[in-house]
């Protein structure tokens, strides 16, 4: 390759097949942490009641009768999350679009929106359980709120941050309001909207587990975690926390892949 630097040219050639270098680099830190974790619990550096060795933790979802509840729990949580997430990004996107496109709407809504947004999400839980009870409705509303706020914010911001240069071109070409919206504003705001969706997703997932933990009634990773805590089962708690992280990671990866496929390589992306 012509553009190689000298150091790159001198480096060993990359492996022809199998996972790339990026994969191994990504795995390195978590693998090191697992090794430290194992050493710490086996050598008694940390109370092994609190820090269960990784080998035991890994087996819990398969061999332990209580641990096996995890799988249905993940299914229930993901379904719940998808429902709330969808509602959240649709409602949040609509609100953000309205505020981004209409100055009148922005002036009217933005101050209240900003104020409400400051409320820590978990403070909503008592209100939601009082209004909707402890069933699915309250949880899904909570998840929708978790997803909706960042979506609305990013959509609004994306639409407001259109470079003046493009707006001037649209004015000079005398594009209609509708064309301006569909051909200029929304496409220009897409990267910001995509980021909004990503943030909304991870918020929705955390919100799902949080809602289950706090509201309880029905299956879920949060319920699994909560019960583990109640029964002093640290192994279950660690499994729950790791599940929370891993599923979140997987969801995020899938979303990014999906977004990359939908948004053509039009040079708009900064990745």
């Amino acid at each position: 390759m012509v553009d190689q630097t000298v150091s790159e040219a001198l480096a060993k050639p990359a492996a022809a097949a199998g996972p790339g270098r990026d994969f191994w680099r990504g795995i390195a830190v978590p693998a090191a942490l697992v090794v430290i974790w194992s050493a710490a619990s086996h050598l008694g550096l940390v109370d092994s009641r609190l820090l269960v060795p990784p080998e035991r933790v890994a087996l819990v979802p398969f061999l332990d009768a209580d641990g096996r509840e995890l799988w249905l729990g993940i299914t229930a949580s993901v379904l719940r999350m998808l429902a709330g997430f969808t509602i959240g990004i649709l409602a949040g996107g609509a609100l953000g679009l309205l505020m981004g496109v209409s100055r009148f709407a922005e002036r009217g809504i933005a101050p209240s929106f900003t104020a409400v947004r400051q409320i820590t999400l978990f403070a909503w839980i008592p209100l939601l359980t009082a209004w909707f009870g402890n069933g699915e409705a309250a949880k899904i509303v909570f998840i929708a709120l978790s997803a909706g706020f960042p979506m609305a914010l990013n959509t609004h911001q994306g639409l407001r941050d259109i470079p003046i240069a493009f707006v001037e071109v649209a004015r000079v070409l005398r594009l209609s309001r509708r064309r301006l919206l569909t051909q200029v504003l929304v496409p220009s705001a897409l990267p910001a909207i995509a980021i909004g969706i990503e943030i909304a997703l991870i918020n929705a997932w955390i919100g799902t587990v949080g809602a289950e933990y706090a509201m309880g009634l029905g299956r879920g990773v949060g319920a699994f975690l909560a019960e583990g805590r109640e029964q002093f089962r640290m192994d279950i708690v660690i499994v729950g926390v790791l599940t929370l992280a891993l599923v979140g990671f997987v969801l995020n990866t899938l979303l990014r892949a999906g977004v990359a496929r939908l948004m053509p390589a039009s040079g708009n992306s900064r990745r």
Partner: peptide, 19 residues
């Protein structure tokens, strides 16, 4: 049949809500 892990307070809410 619903078994509430939120115990007493959650059940009071459910009764209040018609749940």
């Amino acid at each position: 049949w619903g078994y509430f892990t939120g115990t007493g307070p959650a059940i009071n809410e459910a009764l209040a809500n018609g749940q």
